[in-house]
Design a protein around this nucleic acid. Structure first.
Lengths: 239, 239
DNA sequence: AGTATGGTTTAGGCACACCTAAAACTGCAA
DNA sequence: TTGCAGTTTTAGGTGTGCCTAAACCATACT
């Protein structure tokens, strides 16, 4: 493949970003953001589905590009430039997903893969026009906030579902679109973004969610969720 | 870049097609189709903007994949499989352009580059849904016919403008979206696809086009077109 | 027919991104 | 404090696609 600099018209010094570089930046950002943990080389390798040495090599390259901070054997962090690139990719991804669901009638569980490819192919112009056409949405179909044109992102006060204490009452805010099982679980039990529920039990990592019934709806059944799934959801605590 | 097999969900044996292979197939098809000439290695190299040896190597590869017929030192031709791939790419390209113009308010002179990148990133599913949303258009914004889902293509009886005899009366049918000057010329002189005109003079390859004035329109001025531009337009002869 | 001229192919290399296997480092535990 | 386990990095190698320079063939011209 050509030394492909993916989409043209990138705003600043991102001309050098290849598809891979974009993916690495986005993944580092996601790991740090979603989990709040410090990013290790092996976590990155596992998430991206590449070997450990590949990560080392890429980190050297991205450090030279000024996108990551990485001293040997130390954890990995994005620089400001790296974060900008990551946020630009997140913006692309989420706008594309919103569009696929709204206008091409994709299911919310189908959009991830498609967006994953498209986000590397579209231009800055495209993103801006799409944003305009969609009416500057602030949240994508999975409840994830969409960075604005200035790449700022206002996260609501949310918590990973797997970290919520038992007996808490919560509102479902976000689902990680990269975890099909999580989307499927919510879909089959008819639990949409914004649904209220009580966390009734926690044992061995699993969580049981009791949806609070809404006026005019039949009582939904309890849902048992594995750790992998509760790790892919974010909720806000009520009261 | 990964041995990227571009978009998933390709119908038949195209799983092996990389972005480059797709571009080669499309270009070979375009050269053979638009000009009706036999495709030489150097013509291909020039059109694709690569060196001659690169073409040789790629032809070897594509011959092994069963996409082209190519004996050393002989001209290049697509096999049936190769033509299928090319038509699939043409379909993608033209549907995407139609969509960009209709729904994202792109100018018809802006869409080519964007479509060029997107066509390698979208899935079969995406193409089908786009086709449905657009109402199964049969022609793109440049007047080029769009292959149907079965990849058949009905060309109207057209002729390259540069080959039309002087004093002929013609109807503008297609413009090659890859030639910005042609699009610009038509745009500035307000000559849309479907316009009628008389070819009033031909000298040294250049052509002068006298638009036939339509009811209620002011008489348009004559337009002088270089050979490069008349080579990028197709017309049907009236009577 | 013999040679010149051009297009075509081989030869040798580079950049990107990935891999496995082996060496090197960190930090915790005995 | 020393050793070991696990992580991280180096070393060496693959596949794709591109390049320049040099050899090759095929045809057109004298």
């Amino acid at each position: 493949m050509t030394p492909r600099t993916s989409a043209q018209g990138r705003s600043t010094a991102f001309h050098t970003a290849t598809t891979s570089v974009e993916d690495y930046a986005k993944t580092i950002y996601g790991l740090a953001e979603w989990d709040g943990a410090s990013v290790t080389a092996s976590a990155l390798a596992k998430t991206l589905g590449v070997s450990n040495p590949s990560v080392t090599l890429m980190m050297r390259k991205m450090a030279e590009l000024g996108l990551v901070e990485h001293r040997p054997y130390a954890p990995i962090a994005l620089t400001d430039a790296g974060r900008q690139l990551a946020l630009a990719m997140v913006r692309r991804h989420r706008l594309i997903e919103t569009w696929l669901v709204r206008e091409l009638r994709y299911g919310w569980d189908e959009v991830h893969e498609e967006a994953e490819r498209l986000e590397h192919a579209v231009s800055e112009t495209f993103v801006d026009r799409l944003d305009m056409r969609l009416g500057h949405p602030r949240v994508d179909p999975h409840g994830d906030p969409i960075p604005g044109p200035d790449l700022t992102l206002n996260y609501p006060q949310t918590e990973l579902l797997c970290r919520v204490p038992a007996a808490a009452e919560v509102r479902l805010e976000q689902v990680d679109d990269g975890v099909p099982d999580a989307l499927l679980a919510l879909d089959t039990h008819r639990v949409p973004i914004g649904a209220h529920a009580t966390v009734t039990a926690t044992e061995g990592g699993d969580v049981v969610l009791s949806p609070t019934r809404t006026v005019g709806e039949q009582a939904a059944e309890d849902i048992r969720l594995t750790h992998e799934i509760t790790h892919a959801m974010r909720v806000s605590l009520i009261r």
